[in-house]
Amino acid sequence: MVSIEQVIAAYGPALVRIAASYERERALRDDLVQEITVAIWRALSSLQDPAKLKPFVFRIAHNRAVSHVARQAARPGRAELSEALHDGEADPEARLVGKERSERLVEAVRRLPLAYRQVVTLALEDLSYDDIAEALGLSVSNVGVRLNRAKAQLKAMLDG
């Protein structure tokens, strides 16, 4: 039986990143992460196969995040990107460049249509095509198509 502490230890940072792709405002993002964690905690007893934990966790994360966005009156993106991103690099200039790249990517991901955003965030979290398909209820070939289109749109936004 997998415990919620194990889930947080293994996927906590990934859950925060997923939430950040839906919610720009930091306080709301943290609330969303909490909602996701509670939903996972309540659903954990229904997990049949511990080997499927990763798609199970990300499916709940995306479903909870989608409902969060549905409840918002406006599109996500009311406030500026989180104020305090630190990547731990000693060189302030390198840190600034890293921070800027990270912010641009997250912002570009947020601007993707939801169908592409979900696939690309899971790919960025290193999920296989099979796991992405299972998490989102898609066919593997559909995952490939969406990921290619998402990458093309991301490239255009980041280069533009």
Partner: peptide, 14 residues
């Protein structure tokens, strides 16, 4: 790599 550069901030949240 850029996606994971958000990590340090995440410590407080977890």
């Amino acid at each position: 790599r850029n996606w994971r550069a958000q990590d340090a901030e995440i410590e407080g949240v977890t």
